[in-house]
Computed example of a mutant assay.
Amino acid sequence: MIQQMYPQTLHPYTFELNKDMQLSAAHYVPKEEAGKCRRLHGHTYFINVTVAGDELDESGFLINFAHIKQLVHDRFDHTILNEHDVFNDEDPNKFPTTEVVARTICEMIQQHLDSLSHKPKCVGVFVRETPTSYVMYRPKLVKKG
């Protein structure tokens, strides 16, 4: 069962949409300090994406749930995260740690949302890597007009 309790993301928007996903992926952290995580290993990640906005599209959505799944699950499920172009082994800000995975998912989703006429915002991404460890990424929101 997907973990369904997440820290709340406060925002000034009228609508909030949450999409839960589960994906299996492997990764490694290319630094000696990472200990065991330096070796290739896998996780079943539980991910929650929060999108918010004041306006809906012509179908009555902030975004179709299926589009979020395509952007994240379809791209990363059953892959080695280090092999994706959004991560690399040279820049610590691009290592596929849980923190960077959460930020990267948020940025990927926001890039798609920016192409929509009603301009919803990705206000948070929760990534649970193990039953006892998770990251919550919240981008800094620009105050509305």
Rank of each mutant, 00 (worst) to 15 (best):
I109A: 07
H78F: 08
A26W: 02
V100I: 07
H118F: 06
S24L: 13
T79F: 01
I105Y: 01
H73W: 02
R128C: 05
E58M: 03
F87P: 02
Y134C: 04
Q111T: 09
V142T: 15
T98H: 04
D20L: 08
V135W: 09
L23K: 13
G35L: 11
D74M: 10
A26Y: 04
S115R: 15
K94Q: 07
E129M: 12
H73T: 15
H112I: 14
D74C: 14
T97I: 04
L23P: 03
D54P: 02
L81E: 00
A26C: 05
C37H: 00
H43D: 00
S115C: 11
V86I: 08
P30R: 00
K119L: 07
T79H: 00
R138S: 10
T79P: 03
T104V: 08
I105G: 01
I68G: 01
V101W: 03
Y134L: 14
T104S: 01
E99H: 06
L62E: 02
D57M: 00
K31N: 06
R128T: 01
K121P: 02
V72M: 02
Y6I: 11
S117M: 03
G145Y: 15
P30F: 11
H73Q: 12
Y13H: 07
H112Y: 02
D74Q: 09
I80T: 11
Q8L: 14
D89G: 10
S133C: 13
F126Q: 07
H73R: 14
Y134D: 02
E58G: 03
T130L: 03
I63F: 01
S133Y: 11
T79W: 00
L17R: 06
E107C: 05
D85L: 07
R39A: 11
L141D: 03
F87T: 10
Y6E: 05
D89S: 08
M1P: 13
E16K: 10
F15E: 12
I109M: 05
T14G: 08
D89M: 02
G145T: 10
N64G: 07
F126A: 08
D20H: 15
H84T: 07
